[in-house]
Simulated assay, not measured.
Amino acid sequence: MLNTWTAFKSLCPKTKQINMKTNQLVIVRHGESEWNKLNLFCGWHDAELSEQGAKDAVNISAAALRESDLKFDIAYSSALTRAKQSLSIILKELNSCDMEVVSDWHLNERHYGNLTGYNKRDVADKYGEEQVQLWRRKFDVLPPPIEKENAYYDCIRKNPNFKDIPTSEFPVTESLKVVMQRVIPYFENVIFKQVLAGKRVLIVAHGTVARALIKHIDKVSDENISTVNVPNSIPCVVEFNMETGEKVGKTTFLADENFLNQQIQKTASIGLSNK
């Protein structure tokens, strides 16, 4: 379970096996979106970054990667605009606009079903904060499926970025468990192979996708994953033994510990504060 957040330097133990070849994977949750700012359940709705989200991509994400001297060969994002915008800003700041970029729907945020478009505080007032936290954080609890009457049903289904998704795989609601069923095979069969081949990989995606990857990589239990919160914009670094595929050292967030803990608490409580 991820209960200790450390500085980047702790990722590199003082003593390593001399001949161990390692490579690092970096995961970034996109910056604040317009719907984050409005406290709305977003999911597969294609919201754009807010002005603050764009600034954070520069001042938090790119700044931390630059300070840690991390460079990349290939970058992955979801098919959603807020992730692609964050990645574009980061690459511009790193002078890496010519890098190969892959956008794929398998890295999309979870589909929040019929909660999509509703204010989180209003939903908590109606159903109770405990129920909302179950929908948000529990491993296998599904929100109500999106209905055709939902104001955002058509724009989600008709998003041209989703045109290649097979009808049978187009979700109407997702839990973290369901998200992992699309994220982890794509990670193992596509992204992780690049990492083990020596490619320096950056992933810019979403909170639930980051939690899915952390659960998989760190072998977090179904119960404990509900306590793992991934803040916006702060890069997360994982190092692997390229020969065995095993993780080396700790999962590390590139931020001052006080700021990191502050942002984690903000993520954990988002949407449930009083109006």
Rank of each mutant, 00 (worst) to 15 (best):
N108I: 04
E109F: 08
E109K: 07
R110L: 10
R110A: 06
R110P: 00
H111V: 01
H111W: 05
H111Y: 02
Y112S: 03
Y112T: 00
Y112M: 04
G113I: 00
G113H: 01
N114D: 14
N114P: 01
L115M: 08
L115K: 00
T116D: 07
T116V: 07
G117K: 05
Y118D: 02
Y118Q: 10
N119Q: 13
N119Y: 06
N119H: 11
K120C: 05
R121G: 09
R121T: 13
D122I: 07
D122E: 14
D122M: 10
D122N: 13
V123A: 03
V123R: 00
V123L: 04
V123N: 01
A124L: 06
A124M: 06
A124Y: 01
D125E: 13
D125Y: 08
D125R: 13
D125C: 12
D125V: 13
K126C: 12
Y127H: 13
Y127M: 08
Y127D: 06
Y127C: 08
G128V: 08
G128C: 10
E129G: 08
E129C: 09
E129P: 05
E130W: 15
E130I: 15
E130F: 15
Q131S: 11
Q131F: 05
V132M: 11
V132L: 11
V132P: 01
Q133K: 12
Q133H: 10
Q133M: 13
L134D: 14
W135E: 01
W135T: 00
W135F: 10
W135M: 03
W135Q: 04
W135A: 02
R136K: 15
R136E: 03
R136N: 04
R136Q: 07
R137A: 11
R137H: 13
R137Q: 12
K138R: 15
D140Y: 15
V141G: 01
L142C: 08
L142W: 03
P143K: 00
P143N: 04
P143F: 02
P144H: 02
P144C: 05
P144L: 06
P145S: 10
I146C: 00
E147T: 11
K148E: 15
E149Q: 10
E149R: 12
N150T: 05
N150S: 13
A151C: 09
A151Y: 03
Y152M: 04
Y152I: 04
Y153I: 07
Y153W: 14
C155K: 08
I156T: 01
I156W: 01
I156G: 00
I156P: 00
R157Y: 09
R157A: 08
R157F: 12
K158V: 05
K158F: 10
K158W: 07
N159P: 12
N159H: 14
N159D: 15
P160S: 14
P160I: 10
N161K: 12
N161D: 11
F162V: 07
F162L: 13
K163N: 13
K163L: 09
K163D: 12
D164N: 15
D164V: 06
